[in-house]
């Protein structure tokens, strides 16, 4: 049964091979360090990209709360999609109005949720 998933392992191995090679080849083939190791250019090279003033950057700096909101909405609606897939796959073979009614009811409920979120202004990017 699981035997048919074997190619996944082959593709995974190929992906790791290529990805790993791309990520490490520069260590082997590229120049090891900048000329004149102690020069200010060699030190400045390690700075993150910045335009103009020196960068004052830390990994914990803040970002807009809108991103967080989008992530929450995504979980809500993506679960809707995931739940619909199994039902969608059997809809034709069962051919029953009951299953159809279930689908329509489920989607309608989430559509109401979408309209609520929309009216609340959560879909407007700020």
């Amino acid at each position: 049964m699981l035997h048919q998933y074997l190619p996944v392992l082959v593709f995974a191995a190929l992906g790791i091979l290529v990805g790993g090679a791309f990520a490490t080849l520069n260590l082997v083939l590229g120049p090891k360090r900048l000329k004149g190791d102690e020069s200010s250019a060699a030190i400045r090279q390690m700075d993150p990209y910045e335009c103009g003033l020196p960068s004052e950057i830390s990994k914990t700096f803040r970002f807009g709360v809108s991103f967080y909101l989008v992530a929450m909405l995504f979980i809500l609606f993506d679960i809707e999609v995931v739940f619909l897939y199994p039902v969608g796959a059997i809809l034709k073979s069962t051919d029953s109005v009951f299953v159809l009614a279930e689908v329509v009811l489920f989607v309608a409920l989430l559509f109401v949720a979408l309209i609520y979120v929309w009216r609340k202004g959560a879909l407007d990017w700020r």
Partner: peptide, 27 residues
């Protein structure tokens, strides 16, 4: 090109991220 890691970067994650995108595409 020189293999390069900027000062503030997280060592392991910085190197593994490009490989991850390739692995996902190949899979």
């Amino acid at each position: 090109k020189q293999a390069f890691r900027p000062k503030g970067a997280v060592p392991f994650l910085y190197e593994i991220a490009p490989a991850l995108t390739i692995i996902s595409a190949v899979l």
